[in-house]
Write a protein that binds this DNA or RNA. Structure first.
Length: 480
RNA sequence: CGGGGCGUAGCGCAGCCUGGUAGCGCACCUGCCUUGGGCGCAGGUGGUCGCCGGUUCAAAUCCGGCCGCCCCGACCA
């Protein structure tokens, strides 16, 4: 035993997560409290996430740009609810070049304000609209309690910022980007999510309407995995983003913003991981396949490595992200455990017996032990591997969906509701009153995650808390 | 900021009560041997014991102060 085993998820989910992030070499703690170093393996995963999202943003007409990290503090103060929301968590730069600054600068917590400033300069006419810009950057929020990937003082994300001529266009954009996130989560990360609308209490500071995708983690808690905001004309009015319409009338723009962060890496860990470690969805895994050669002596080594290099090249040529683990200072058994902990979806074992039969052993990460192993011929390996990866991708999604269903309840009364949110999600009629929502939060620690977009028609019943008639149903859960 | 825990080798820890040459496991390095589920043997490298001060012939150990980190809560993508 090289390393002590991870804690199991059932005995200590939080500690399982912390240790796994460190041991899998996704990230490490930085010298400053709450900050994180993203290590190459973690960054490779993030790069695959960014690639999958970026292509979707471009396909929907967006372009990338870069905005400065330093923002005049007065900018934050221009939009009333925005300043209220973000002031407590701002990092402020007061000195530069050895001199006290005339006006303090904040490290951007998000870029709505500096975007507002620029858009006000750039937009004159309805012909300038819409503006559809996305930023890949980092932001800083002075959070009190941090956790690797889930909540760090500095995090990486993308933030989209758009400006439109009409409310209808802004609404459509907000919803379109929520759909993009949903599509990404389900089809790339194999994470089932619930797209929905946030309550007023949970809304982004400065938004008229906030939508999110909510995912269930392996311990039944919810994670907001992406958000899309309809900012109405709030920022347009604060920053005077105006245009002349075809009739020559001066109008305020309608703006949106939407973001998805490195927090999503945490979601992947917590949704798919098991007691052995990570299980990465094939479409995002840095290494989709790891090839482990096995041999006893020089003659076997030569033959096995020759085959290994040939197969590695074949797979790479077929577009498979394959890693050949040719370390000779650790045993095959060690490598099996190591790569399982690090979540590689498919392993190829290649030893003298396989070489003799022109075959390899495939071992699926999602099915532990012998059950997940099978011998397949070397001829046509790339096709077999590609097919197997697609199966794993699908099985991860199916499994996560089944788990979410198992942990989602539709309690009939408040007593049942209190039990339900201890185990997972509760879908219940809600009257829409913020007071009920606040009482529920105070009494159960469960928050309103979202009002799902997909609702059955007609009245939903009676509010689980106050019994008043409810027009809609909402998901409540404890959340990260 | 409230509650809890911890700072001794890269990591995990023991030693502290009862002061007296700083230890164990893993990792790392060298060599041999091994390799189909976390190989083995032998030899080695590595620490101003979180920081400052006090007591003492002598402090990882006793006393005082400070700092940092982690976990649980309030805040949050």
């Amino acid at each position: 035993m090289a390393e002590p085993k991870l804690p199991t998820r059932s005995e200590d989910f939080s500690e399982w997560y912390n240790q796994l992030v460190l041991r899998a070499e996704l990230a490490d703690y930085a010298p400053v409290r709450g900050c994180m170093i993203v290590r190459p393996y973690g960054w490779a995963l993030w790069e695959n996430i960014t690639a999958a999202l970026d292509s979707r943003f471009k396909a929907t007409g967006h372009v990338n740009a870069a905005f400065p990290m330093l923002i005049p503090r007065s900018f934050i103060e221009k939009e009333k609810s925005h300043v209220a929301g973000f002031s407590p968590e701002l990092a402020v730069v007061t000195h530069g070049g050895g001199e006290k600054l005339e006006e303090p600068l904040v490290l951007r917590p998000t870029s709505e304000t500096i975007i507002g400033h620029a858009y006000a300069k750039w937009i004159r006419s309805y012909r300038d609209l819409p503006i559809l810009i996305n930023l890949w950057n980092n932001v800083v929020r002075w959070e009190l309690r941090t956790k690797l990937f889930l909540r760090t003082l500095e995090f990486y994300w993308q933030e989209g910022h758009t400006a439109h001529a009409t409310l209808a266009e802004a609404e459509a954009e907000t919803r379109q980007m929520l759909d993009v996130y949903t599509d990404f989560a389900v089809n790339e990360a194999a994470i089932p999510v619930i797209p929905g609308r946030k309550s007023a209490a949970e809304r982004f500071a400065g938004a008229n309407d906030t939508f999110s995708i909510e995912a269930m983690m392996g311990d039944g808690k919810a994670l907001q995995a992406g958000t899309s905001h309809n900012l109405g004309q709030n920022f347009a009015k604060a920053f005077e983003i105006r245009y002349l319409d075809p009739a020559g009338e001066l109008q305020f723009c309608w703006t949106t913003s939407w973001g998805l962060s490195t927090r999503f890496v945490g979601a992947i860990i917590m949704v798919h991981g098991d007691d052995q470690g990570l299980i990465l969805p094939p479409r995002l895994a840095p290494h989709q396949v790891v090839l482990c050669p096995i041999f006893k002596n020089d003659a076997e080594k030569t033959a096995v490595l020759e085959a290994a290099h040939r197969l590695r090249a074949e797979l790479a040529a077929a577009g498979v992200r394959v890693k050949l683990d040719d370390r000779d200072n650790v045993s095959p058994g060690f490598k099996f455990n190591d790569w399982e902990m690090r979540g590689v979806p498919l392993r190829i074992e290649l030893g003298p017996k396989d070489v003799a039969q022109n075959a390899v052993v495939l071992a699926r990460r999602d099915r532990p032990g012998k059950e997940g192993k099978s011998s397949v011929p070397q001829a046509g390996l790339a096709a077999a591997v590609t097919a197997r990866l697609a199966e794993i991708q699908q099985s991860l999604l199916d499994r996560a969906l089944a788990e979410r269903r198992r942990r989602t309840a539709e309690p009939k009364d408040y007593a049942e509701f209190r039990q339900a949110v201890e185990a997972g999600f509760a879908l219940v009629p809600w009257c829409g009153d913020a007071a009920c929502e606040a009482e529920i939060k105070a009494e159960t620690k469960a928050t309103l995650r979202c009002i799902p977009l997909e609702q059955e028609k007609g009245p939903a019943g009676h509010c689980v808390k106050c019994g008043q008639p409810a027009a809609e149903r909402a998901y409540f859960a404890k959340a990260y």
